Amino acid sequence: MSIQHFRVALIPFFAAFCLPVFAHPETLVKVKDAEDQLGARVGYIELDLNSGKILESFRPEERFPMMSTFKVLLCGAVLSRVDAGQEQLGRRIHYSQNDLVEYSPVTEKHLTDGMTVRELCSAAITMSDNTAANLLLTTIGGPKELTAFLHNMGDHVTRLDRWEPELNEAIPNDERDTTMPAAMATTLRKLLTGELLTLASRQQLIDWMEADKVAGPLLRSALPAGWFIADKSGAGERGSRGIIAALGPDGKPSRIVVIYTTGSQATMDERNRQIAEIGASLIKHW
């Protein structure tokens, strides 16, 4: 067993022997301040990774656009098919120029040779490549099948209805392509620590998230040296922004954090800054 596999296998073990965790309302004060600064709703939840206990939450059962955070769930569904012998990570998928959609920095470079399922998941999570996500959605049967996968996990809230990039439209009061912070946090925890996926697939999923290259201005910008984070960000229309993450000190994750916002007129930089400040408060009061 590799060191990384050992780390993920012992996530519940280490967490069980940690000192009790206590909620700190100071972080919620910052979440509410972010709402004021952005002029928009902000949803927040913080779960203990081992027990699933909610440590703090704000608007945990209000719907927010998922945006690209759905790509972690998508690759979880792909990995479940791999575990069941219905898919192979090494299978190569070929596609054409007509398949390319807006923001496809990886797939646009491989029109000639195609990409493997493993490479597509890596591109979808680490670079948020939209064509990679659409190609992977095709392998599982489309958005409705991802929703069905989530329902089978016990998540009857999260739903995907459309493809990239239309799913980022974020129309107010439109339930399409949305989740709730509580539902997303619980589902992410199941994917990373539950028995739904094999140990190898859980490790692969967290490795992809740990290698995320496009979430630097968010929670990662607030992390002290030595902290662990595996995350996936999302951005959408109407001032929408979000991030889902597993993080913790001492090089291992111990909490799940989900943050979503929508309806702001603020710039992307300002949305990023507010999420980073929430992260800084979380870490300060850990």
Score class of each variant (00 low, 15 high):
P25K: 15
T27N: 04
L79D: 02
L136W: 03
T267W: 06
A266C: 14
V29Y: 12
I229M: 08
L49S: 07
L191R: 01
G263V: 05
I229G: 01
R273E: 15
I54H: 08
G216M: 09
E145D: 11
E270S: 12
L191I: 11
L160D: 02
D113P: 08
M115C: 05
G76E: 00
P224C: 05
E61S: 13
L199S: 14
R238F: 15
K109P: 08
G141E: 07
D212H: 04
T193N: 13
N168P: 01
R255Q: 05
L199P: 14
H24F: 08
T179Y: 04
G43P: 01
P65I: 04
T178R: 02
A124S: 10
T198W: 05
H110S: 10
G114S: 05
G239R: 04
D99I: 08
G236F: 02
E210D: 09
L247W: 07
V101S: 08
V42Y: 05
R41F: 08
Q203I: 09
S96R: 13
V29D: 15
N50C: 08
D48I: 04
R255P: 00
T179Q: 02
D161S: 07
P181T: 04
W163P: 08
T69K: 01
E87I: 11
R202V: 09
E56I: 05
F70M: 15
A133F: 01
E270G: 09
G194K: 10
T198M: 09
V78G: 00
Y44Q: 00
H24V: 14
F228H: 08
G226T: 12
L55Q: 08
L160A: 10
N50S: 14
R162C: 06
P65G: 02
Q265T: 14
R81E: 06
L146A: 06
I206E: 09
R255E: 01
E195D: 14
P249M: 09
Q274K: 12
S254D: 14
T198E: 14
I125W: 00
W286K: 00
L55E: 07
E46M: 13
E35W: 00
A123F: 02
L120N: 00
D212P: 05
D36G: 15
R59V: 02
R273P: 04
G52N: 08
R118L: 13
A245I: 03
N168I: 00
P25T: 12
M184T: 01
L223V: 13
P105Y: 06
H156S: 13
H285K: 10
K71Y: 01
Q97W: 12
G43E: 03
A84D: 12
W286Y: 08
R273D: 10
D99P: 05
H24L: 09
L219M: 09
L47W: 00
L192T: 08
L146G: 02
Q37P: 04
L135T: 06
A77M: 15
G85S: 10
A280D: 15
D33L: 11
Q97H: 14
L146R: 01
A245L: 03
S264A: 10
Y44R: 01
E35P: 00
E270Y: 10
R255L: 06
C121G: 05
K109H: 13
R202T: 14
Q86F: 15
T147V: 10
S122K: 12
R241Q: 06
G52M: 06
L135P: 02
P25I: 12
A124Q: 02
S51P: 02
R255C: 04
V29F: 12
Q203M: 11
E26K: 14
K284F: 10
N98V: 15
E26N: 14
V82N: 07
V78S: 02
N130V: 01
Q88L: 14
P249L: 07
G226W: 05
M66S: 04
T147K: 08
W163I: 10
A211Y: 13
M153H: 09
K252D: 15
S51A: 08
A123Y: 02
S240W: 00
H151P: 04
E166R: 11
E61K: 14
R59D: 00
G263K: 06
R81A: 10
R189I: 08
V78A: 07
P25R: 14
C121I: 05
D129R: 00
G279E: 04
H110M: 11
S68M: 02
R162T: 08
P217T: 10
T261V: 14
I278M: 09
T112V: 13
S254T: 14
G52I: 02
E270V: 11
E35A: 06
T116G: 04
T147D: 08
V72N: 03
L199A: 14
R176A: 08
T131L: 07
E169L: 11
P249W: 03
I45P: 01
A77V: 12
T107C: 11
L150G: 05
L205D: 02
P253A: 13
P217W: 06
L38S: 08
G279A: 10
G263A: 08
T267E: 11
T69P: 05
A132N: 02
E166A: 13
V257Y: 04
L218Y: 03
A222I: 11
D129C: 03
D113S: 13
E164R: 01
L79Q: 03
G251W: 08
Q203N: 10
G251T: 10
G43A: 08
D207H: 13
T178G: 02
G142L: 02
E56C: 06
Q203S: 10
A215Q: 03
A77E: 08
P249Y: 06
Y260L: 13
A235Q: 06
E237L: 14
L219A: 03
